[in-house]
């Protein structure tokens, strides 16, 4: 019997698996925004593992800074990693910006300096077990009217 042609839809992904190379997957996921990265973590085991790599979150955080990112690495790592930095400080600030401005490094670099300061203060405060007095409320919008 003659073998029938494979339907075009199936043929599209035949012989192709994006999961074959975890490093390339990390290259792709490093280019996502924070929310998409969180969603990507739910796809499968491999994706979940790659989304937990701190280098992926570092790429996300440093994309918003114009310089000095390399020197911050040791500090961020000591204070809990880039995923934590993003979740606690950078994410909330970035999400308040209009989408078009989120990827402009210059505009956001100031926010990052503030984020880093808040991040260190938060970690310092947690050392004393005084979590309730956290200054993290500063990342929220303040109503000055």
């Amino acid at each position: 019997m003659e073998v029938c042609g494979v339907p075009p839809e199936q043929d599209k992904t035949k012989g192709f698996s994006i999961n074959d190379n975890a490093d390339l997957l990390a290259e792709i996921l490093s280019r996502l925004d924070g929310r998409s990265l969180g969603v990507a973590a739910c796809v499968c085991r491999l994706w979940s593992g790659v989304c937990r790599r701190d280098t992926v979150w570092e790429a996300l955080c440093t994309r918003h800074v114009s310089g000095g990112a390399a020197t911050a690495r040791a500090v961020v790592a000591a204070l809990g990693g880039y995923r934590r930095l993003y979740r606690l400080c950078m994410g909330p600030v970035l999400e308040r910006l209009p989408p078009a401005r989120r990827d402009e490094a210059g505009h956001v670099s100031l926010s990052l300096s503030l984020s880093l300061s808040l991040f260190s203060i938060d970690c310092y405060e947690r050392l004393g077990g005084r979590q309730r007095s956290s200054l993290l409320f500063l990342r929220n919008t303040v109503d000055v009217s």
Binding site: F16, I18, I28, L32, S36, A40, C44
Partner: peptide
């Protein structure tokens, strides 16, 4: 290429991503 690939993943649910790239949910 990575940026273009990432563009395909944005604003999609995990299920939509699995379908597009033919990935099994092994979680």
């Amino acid at each position: 290429i990575a940026v273009t690939f990432a563009g395909m993943l944005k604003m999609k649910s995990p299920e939509e991503i699995r379908q597009k790239f033919n990935i099994n949910n092994d979680l």
